[in-house]
């Protein structure tokens, strides 16, 4: 089948970008979306042109490197799917596909479809860990954890840090990402000890990084490739409220 692509091309952070059109792109329905871009790039290289820069690595939906918005939707139209797992059988012959980078003031564009998501790292550095040093741990089975609780923590922990939540949110809010980490750790007894200071530090850092405020549109939950629930946001709101009311600062 043949597709028309409109791809965001931008030389670097300081230049203005625009959509460029690529007609008659030959596509096999069994290809992944990224393999389709590979084909376009091979063609561009053959024409001695700059290939489309895009971030990708594991190509199996776990590293979180993909950062494309496909026809207005981060990671494209399929539920619970990253761009690398999206296959061309979900598109129609002759369709026009618009590909843009994740957009948010906190994710500056580096080139074409590549954006800088280091703000996420800084949010984690502000408190997204359990303060245990190597060697300090007790036996792994000394604290039983109720299975349901462990499963809920796992679901929150399945976040791959791709940033689709920010890209989807009309407010470019990073609440889903932050709350997933806050929830993952706060739900487990190991992380509960620091839960209050953690939520304060991480939320403050998130705001400092310039992400927007949550207005509960729920777009993040819909676009999250790991289908992380906004229940986590409510949990974080609750924890933040409690922590800030009890805080002496």
């Amino acid at each position: 089948m043949k597709l028309t692509l409109k791809v965001w091309r931008q030389k670097n952070v300081n230049t203005k970008g625009s959509l460029e059109t690529y007609n008659n792109v030959d596509v096999d329905p069994d290809m992944s979306f990224l393999e389709m871009i590979d084909v376009v790039n091979e063609q561009l290289i053959a024409e001695k042109k700059e290939p489309i820069a895009f971030e990708h690595d594991c190509r199996e939906g776990i590293c979180g490197a993909c950062s494309m918005v496909i026809n207005g939707r981060p990671h494209g139209p399929q539920q619970g799917t990253t761009t690398c797992q999206l296959h061309m059988r979900h598109f129609k012959d002759g369709e026009t596909v618009v590909i843009e980078p994740f957009r948010s003031a906190s994710f500056p564009i580096i080139k074409d479809l590549v954006v800088d998501r280091s703000a996420f790292d800084r949010i984690i550095q502000s408190g997204g860990y359990v303060s245990v040093k190597t060697g300090q741990a007790q036996d792994a089975n000394s604290i039983p954890i109720e299975k349901g609780l462990a499963d809920t923590a796992f679901e929150a922990a399945s976040c791959i840090g791709c940033g689709a939540c920010v890209a989807a949110c009309p407010n470019a809010s990073a609440m889903l990402f932050t709350s997933a980490k806050v929830s993952h750790l706060a739900l487990l007894p190991q992380g509960e000890v620091e839960a209050e200071s953690r939520v304060m530090k991480m939320v403050d850092k998130m705001d400092e990084e310039g992400f927007g405020m949550c207005s509960n549109t729920g777009a993040c939950e819909v676009e999250c490739p790991k289908e992380i629930s906004i229940e986590n946001i409510a949990r974080m709101n609750r924890a933040y409220l409690k922590a800030s009311l009890g805080s002496e600062k």
Binding site: V130, A140, K147, A150, H184
Partner: peptide, 13 residues
């Protein structure tokens, strides 16, 4: 395993 559980790795239970 001890170390990872202490860090909050959500192993299956």
């Amino acid at each position: 395993i001890d170390q990872c559980v202490a860090q909050g790795v959500p192993f299956a239970r």
